[in-house]
Amino acid sequence: MSGVVTLKINGIDVGAQENETILDVARENDIFIPTLCYLEGLSRIGACRLCLVEVKGISKLLPACATTVAEGMEVFTDTDRLRKYRRLIVEMLFTEGNHVCSVCVANGHCELQTLAQQHEIDYVSLPYLYPQRTVDASHERFVFDHNRCVLCTRCVRVCDEVEGAHTWDIRGRGIESGVITDLNQPWGTSVTCTSCGKCVQACPTGALFMKGKSVGEMVHSPSFLTFLAQMREAKK
């Protein structure tokens, strides 16, 4: 049994269980906090920094997805400062890859695109970096387009934590890093991949998609994860 705490989010009093995160509580109360690396049912890595919030009395910004609530906390999710940082972070994702929404399989169903819209990004003020990236179409059912990867590692985590295959991992450092299958071999030759497709469903962008999908046709549905997580929780 865990205790109950009360806190304020954007001035509104809310109640929560003491082991919940700020993000959990905000969502329960229909308070919007943008997220990208977070996916319900996967570990919380606090990597994308889009969910950063301000907490009264703490000078650092805290990731809502990985910060547990505390009694009397006063959280602010939508300050000018946060909006400014979030906009820049989303912009940076556009500059880092090669995102051409109009010809993307995920057009209209992409979390990056949605984030841009939510943050009213009408253009990207930072210069595009135009990296040279490849497309891996060696798998018989799926394609991985590195140009559209935002390195959220949702595929890595779902494969490791839910499917248990650990086909995906990360290679390289900094701006040169990228996700790989097995020891950086073509996906189609992977001996660990079970072709379950969980990674494809978990991907927020058009980086992972099913073969045969054309522009705008790839709709990801990661909701199975919520279900799996609940089932596992119930079994414990």
Binding site: F94, N98, V100, C101, S102, V103, D122, Y123, V124, Y128, Y130, P131, Q132, R133, N147
Partner: peptide, 12 residues
């Protein structure tokens, strides 16, 4: 606004 399809050639 973004370079869009014409800018696809930038990486090659």
């Amino acid at each position: 606004v973004t370079g869009n399809v014409p800018s696809l050639r930038n990486s090659v």
